[in-house]
Design a protein around this nucleic acid. Structure first.
Length: 304
DNA sequence: CGGAGCTCCTGGGGGC
DNA sequence: TGCCCCCAGGAGCTCC
């Protein structure tokens, strides 16, 4: 499940392998993968052809590649055209959903079973493939608005690594909510980038129960769980970051972090690393929550 | 309008 | 062996 660290690994892979290249042709193999694009598949293709990829940007789990007009003389390379200096009007927006991957593959590599969109480049090098088994993810070309953020991403809050992220404002907004703590952490309009796995991990590190009522969470606790989220995602990125060093832009949730370093997620019945109490799995919001019942005390008045 | 629940999707795995 | 159901969950949408 790609959350912020996995998406950042993908962003870095795109920066290395795709930035500066010009799109030659695009193939949409599944309409659902482009459902977020207003004009449909044909329009998406038309808006991508001949455009040059700038340095990709990420906010939370969203990723976009600003698109520049390529040089007037077709086929002529544009040396030293530093990205970011020219404002782009639109961008290729990508969300990986549950199972999305971006792969950089040789043109003659066999198509993946769940290949949804293929981008070929004018340099004839490796192509970019969007592969997504469950099609919760998708790609679109979207207009860039204020601050260079795609219009359809404007409602998404900055993530905890964004210099613009305001810890005090986060605590204030969290405490103004009338809901459960984990539900709030998963709300991408409050703080972005955190999904089910890192929410559970952050709550465990902060020793807070997922059903704590947000209005009862102290400012210190709010910042504690936020810092815990930063820490666990930083660790994940440090470990997952090795996989994009190859030609394969590893993108799915398999940074390797899952198996190695998770304290609670997927560890039902195993001992808590801190106190030895068996980790418990509970059903919550129609999905799973993992926690240490000793370290993370259930509140007297839980809120879901 | 905030909050909560529904829904989309597909393959793997368990039960019978 | 085969079939059916459950499970994974991000986020837009709808309803109250």
């Amino acid at each position: 499940m790609p959350e912020l660290p996995e998406v950042e690994v993908v962003r870095r892979g795109l920066e290395r392998w795709v930035a500066g290249r010009t799109v030659d042709d695009v193939e949409v193999l599944h309409p659902r993968a482009v459902r977020r694009h207003g004009g449909g598949a044909a329009d998406l293709v038309a808006r991508l052809r001949g455009r040059t990829a700038a340095v990709p940007v990420r906010r939370g789990k969203y990723l976009w590649v600003p698109l520049r007009q390529s040089g007037a003389a077709s086929g002529v390379a544009e040396p030293d055209r530093r990205s970011g200096e020219e404002a782009a009007d639109d961008a290729l927006l990508v969300h990986l959903g549950m199972s999305g991957q971006l792969l950089v593959q040789p043109a003659d590599a066999t198509d993946e079973r769940h290949l949804r969109v293929r981008l070929r480049f004018t340099d004839g090098g490796r192509e970019l493939r969007f592969v997504d088994q469950r099609t919760f993810g998708g790609v679109a070309v979207d207009e860039l608005g204020a601050g260079g953020v795609p219009l359809s991403v404007a409602h998404i809050a900055p993530d905890p690594f964004d210099p613009a992220f305001d810890d005090a404002a986060f605590a204030r907004r969290l405490r103004a909510r009338r809901t459960g703590l984990k539900r709030a952490l998963l709300d991408q309009t409050l703080v972005s980038g955190i999904g089910n796995i890192y929410a559970d991990e952050a709550l465990w590190r902060a020793r807070l129960h997922y059903a704590r009522a947000t209005e009862g969470v102290t400012r210190a606790e709010a910042v504690r769980v936020l810092d815990a989220a930063r820490a666990v995602m930083t660790d994940a990125l440090a470990q997952g970051g090795t996989s994009f060093d190859s030609l394969y832009v590893n993108v799915n949730g398999e940074s390797g972090y899952f198996e190695r370093s998770l304290a609670v997620y997927g560890r039902e019945g195993q001992e808590c690393d801190r106190c030895g109490t068996p980790i418990r799995r509970e059903s919550f919001m129609n999905r799973s929550s993992y926690l240490c019942p000793a370290c993370q005390k259930r509140p007297r008045h839980p809120r879901w």
